[in-house]
């Protein structure tokens, strides 16, 4: 009985401690910060490729503003939107590597 009580107490302590900071889970501010950094890195890549989209920057700025206001849920959501836009613009840059070559008219008549 004594052992069971001790064990129960230990389990409870562990559970409480686990609820407070589950292993591997980030705080909301750290999650938002990481999402902003990832979105920014993707945005910088699209910018370097000459394919940045204007809304990506807008969403990134909104994420940073929300982060500064300590609204980490909003910051995370905006950063994820920015990341999605930046990734899509990178996919566009990739597709356009060759796709652009077929868009200009081709002469049908022989040269004079």
């Amino acid at each position: 009985m004594k052992i069971s009580k001790t064990l129960a107490a230990a389990l409870l302590l562990g559970l409480v401690a686990g609820c407070d900071a589950p292993q591997g889970q980030q705080s909301p501010s750290a999650s938002a910060q990481q999402a902003i950094e990832q979105a920014d890195a993707s945005y910088q890549q699209s910018s370097a490729a000459g394919h940045a989209w204007s809304q990506t920057k807008v969403r990134l700025q909104a994420a940073r503003a929300a982060f500064a206001a300590e609204d980490y849920d909003a910051a995370l959501a905006e950063a994820e939107r920015a990341r999605a836009l930046a990734d899509a613009s990178l996919a566009q840059a990739q597709a356009e590597q060759t796709a652009w070559q077929d868009r200009f008219p081709v002469a049908r008549s022989p040269s004079k």
Partner: peptide, 9 residues
């Protein structure tokens, strides 16, 4: 190439 490349959202 610029003229023929799709850009933007």
């Amino acid at each position: 190439r610029f003229y023929s490349t799709r850009r933007g959202q």
